[in-house]
């Protein structure tokens, strides 16, 4: 919204600076239009922000008032209890102690999954026939809900970090793989033909045409999957573990401590949000490109 406003201002400014100075009346019309527009936009933005703030306050107040009256406190806890729990975990170091395991599994799993996906997708993306052979099996593996493999990984790799890393990698792998293959396969035929006629060798074609064309797809997938890696790690912790944020949540649940469960969910949500925001620039790293969408979401 702010951007649109700015663009309009310059446009009007350019109009005023025409070689032939417009008559006074015209200048007045232009200036009036500008001030009126700015005023409306400002008023509108204020209303929107007030409404947003109102909703936030309203939800917290409604939560506070309804807890213990409309809904049993057991179900929803109370805002101040959740806040107190967050402060307590921060002060006694629980948050960081558990957080480090989840984040370690997340990052290692993310890198392993992404690297494996790219290394496998690279040759398959360039060899259409090999890809067609592999495709049905990849779709097959993709339709196995990753969570169902949680117990398998735990059984194979124990209760420590390894199964969480593998689960995180598994959550990352398919999205990166599918997007990387798509990146290699979507290169417009025309670009390839023109380059071949210009005399491109196979290596030159790959370097100048195919690789640059695939990179945005890979980056978009890398951006979308870091949160997924964290979800994989947390699922592993839910199923079986004695530390990590997922453990924090399920431990609180088994003690029927609602405030603890909500606080843990809140922390995870904040981390995922932070990771999402942090990686947003990855989608548009260069001047030439206009961004690519990945069709896969958070779980």
């Amino acid at each position: 919204m702010g951007l649109g406003n700015g663009a309009r201002v310059t446009a009007v400014g350019e109009r005023i600076a025409l070689p032939r100075p417009p008559a006074d009346a015209a200048v007045r019309v232009l200036e009036d239009t500008l001030t009126r527009r700015q005023a409306t936009l400002r008023a509108r933005r204020r209303t929107v922000w007030l409404a947003r703030l109102g909703i936030l306050v309203g939800v917290i107040v409604a939560w506070e008032l309804s807890s213990g009256t409309l809904v049993r406190t057991f179900f929803v806890s109370r805002p101040e209890a959740v806040a107190a729990r967050l402060v307590e975990w921060t002060l006694n170091g629980d948050l960081f102690w558990h957080g480090q395991f989840t984040l370690t599994a997340t990052f290692i799993g993310y890198m392993v999954g992404a690297l494996a996906a790219i290394l496998l997708a690279w040759p398959l993306g360039l060899m259409p026939r090999a890809y067609r052979v592999a495709e049905p099996y990849i779709l097959l593996a993709y339709s196995i809900p990753a969570v169902a493999l949680g117990p398998v990984f735990i059984l194979w790799f124990g209760l420590e970090l390894l199964p969480k890393i593998i689960l995180a990698a598994y959550f990352v792998f398919f999205v990166v793989f599918i997007n990387t293959v798509a990146g290699f396969r979507q290169v417009p035929r025309g670009l390839i033909d023109v380059s071949l006629v210009m005399g491109a060798s196979r290596a030159a074609l790959f370097r100048t045409v195919i690789l640059p064309s695939a990179v945005p797809y890979v980056l978009a997938a890398l951006r979308a999957t870091l949160p997924a890696a964290m979800i994989g790690a947390v699922v592993g912790e839910f199923i079986a573990s004695n530390r990590g944020l997922g453990y924090l949540a399920s431990a609180a649940a088994s003690e029927y401590e609602t405030d603890g469960v909500i606080a843990a969910a809140f922390v995870m949500a904040v981390i995922v949000l932070a990771l999402t925001v942090l990686l947003r620039p990855l989608g548009r790293v260069t001047r030439w490109q206009r961004g690519v969408d990945v069709s896969e979401g958070s779980l």
């Binding site: 025309g190 670009l191 033909d193 023109v194 005399g199 491109a200 640059p212 030439w288 490109q289």
Partner: peptide
């Protein structure tokens, strides 16, 4: 060709040089 088929990730001069580069 009918479409300009310029490489989106190369500047104008980079695109014009492309054939010479391949050669």
């Amino acid at each position: 060709t009918q479409d300009d088929n310029l490489l989106p990730w190369r500047s104008l001069v980079g695109n014009v040089e492309l054939g010479l580069e391949f050669r």
